[in-house]
Amino acid sequence: MAARVLACASCHGAEGEGTSDVYFPRLAGKPAGYLYNQLIAFRDGRRRYPPMNYLLEFLPDAYLQKMADHFAALRPPFPAPNIPTDSKEILARGETLVKEGDARSGVPACSACHGPALGGMEPAIPGLLGLRASYISAQLGGWRYGTRTAAAPDCMQIVAGLLSEDDVKAVAAYLSSRPAPNDPSFAPRGSLPMPLECGSQPR
């Protein structure tokens, strides 16, 4: 399988660990259901990024599932965390949003669905560690502007719509500054009480 998906390696690394490009995400160790949903969304144009849309256009579901299973099972080391250049206040705001959310604007905590260790939950909620700030803020922007969408109800579109520009910056700065998790696996299915209905993650 590694040889078949060498096409992915130049952007995502041979083991899906990510590369030096800050916009290309780590794939390794994310739940297979999440990876599969993204592959289908890129293939069918629900998530827009032309190089990915182009590569996947004529690949059948069964093969995309195998690709997802392949990268979900890999556990390459995490990169060194980003050394934050943002102020303590911004990082503290990010930490609050990630761990507690913001009751006033109705933003749920990231950890409510992505897990207290932010490793994600089976089958389709991704881990948030090992990603760069640029990638995280670009994805939150993508949801707000509709270039990234998921099965309805699209919970992340709702969450991204509730965040201010400063919130996005703070969340991205905090998440990218976190060290590698001790246990890089994701939470079992149904183990977290999700505050929002999500089309890709049946409760």
């Binding site: 096409a7 952007c11 590569l55 093969y63």
Partner: peptide, 16 residues
Amino acid sequence: FPPGTMGNPEPYGMPP
């Protein structure tokens, strides 16, 4: 990637 077909369901891809 070449297309995934019945005769070649899991094609090898060339990286960009």
